[in-house]
Write a protein that binds this DNA or RNA. Sequence first.
DNA 1: CTGCAATAGTTGGGAGTTAAACTATTCTGC
DNA 2: GCAGAATAGTTTAACTCCCAACTATTGCAG
Lengths: 180, 180
Amino acid sequence: MVAELNILGNGPARTRRTEAKASSGVDLGPLEGWIGFHLRLAQNASFQAFAREARGIDLSPGRFAVLMLIGRNPGISQTALSRANARDKSSLTPVLDDLERRKLIKRTRTRRDRRSYQLTLTPAGDRLLQQLTACAERHDANLDRIIGTKNKARFLQTLKKLIAELAGDERANGASRERD
Amino acid sequence: MVAELNILGNGPARTRRTEAKASSGVDLGPLEGWIGFHLRLAQNASFQAFAREARGIDLSPGRFAVLMLIGRNPGISQTALSRANARDKSSLTPVLDDLERRKLIKRTRTRRDRRSYQLTLTPAGDRLLQQLTACAERHDANLDRIIGTKNKARFLQTLKKLIAELAGDERANGASRERD
DNA sequence: CTGCAATAGTTGGGAGTTAAACTATTCTGC
DNA sequence: GCAGAATAGTTTAACTCCCAACTATTGCAG
């Protein structure tokens, strides 16, 4: 589980190569200043930090968002869930299979539309969601500590702007994306 | 077990369906304010935007960083490259196989240490790298336009801080890690 | 009712990732 | 030297993801 995120020496001693070298002595070149590269690293780091916070809980972090979204939107369909989670619906199938097998969620067929399912948490699922929410709160507090509560708001705003604008470009640029 | 999304969180408690919804009509709940969730979305969007910028070039965006790192650090070993790129060394093997097969890089065994390779770009690899660099510069300029040149510096700094601090936590938190 | 488009969910293929086991080589201590 | 630890790279298995094709159901002409 331990990844070797060893880049970007931003603090530790032994930083003589202030130039373009990171702690590993590798020249990142233009990557040093590129957003996309660091977005990936940050996402990675954040993911692992949360996984650490939630270790000991038998549920991968990726499933947490699913559980949360079902908890907040009881009766939601798989398609709506996949949209909210920004993943293809097909990647949801095995996840929900697993959560259902572990009796954390329930898939109920409706008589109105027998194609779709209504997703709900079981009591066990709700309990687990609450445990994970506690982990997430610790993690979030951690981020606050790191980047500062004030900066966090601005940071989040910039992230959202990036997301919205790039998604808009996508549409303008020809790649098709279904709209709602 | 570690390769997907990333959630953090905290949040109010409200369990109603049709209200305070995001664009898709779904209540994101606490996810709305969580860094990790939006980091994932932003990374995703940025990745796709770059892919769009570089479409028409026969090289996936994921390989671009590899090419760049080799170009800036001729003779680098696969292990050092994997660290700089923050990916497991095993994921590098098929990528380098492919790049080598396409005559973009060269793997040279050294007599000093016959376990390792020295990676270098071929002239073709160097030409391709320059094409991709141009794409990346357009992409980066695009990001500048979106978030503003001034904010970009702060944004990048926050990203780096996040990366560095969370990686530091990893060590403090018990995950064993080889010395450096 | 019949035919056909649209929708919900599943399946399969390909790409990318990690962790662990493995091979080959180098290093260390005796 | 030689045994054993450490290191460089590869392989394998399992996982997540997307996209495209598929099945089943619904809705809508006609």
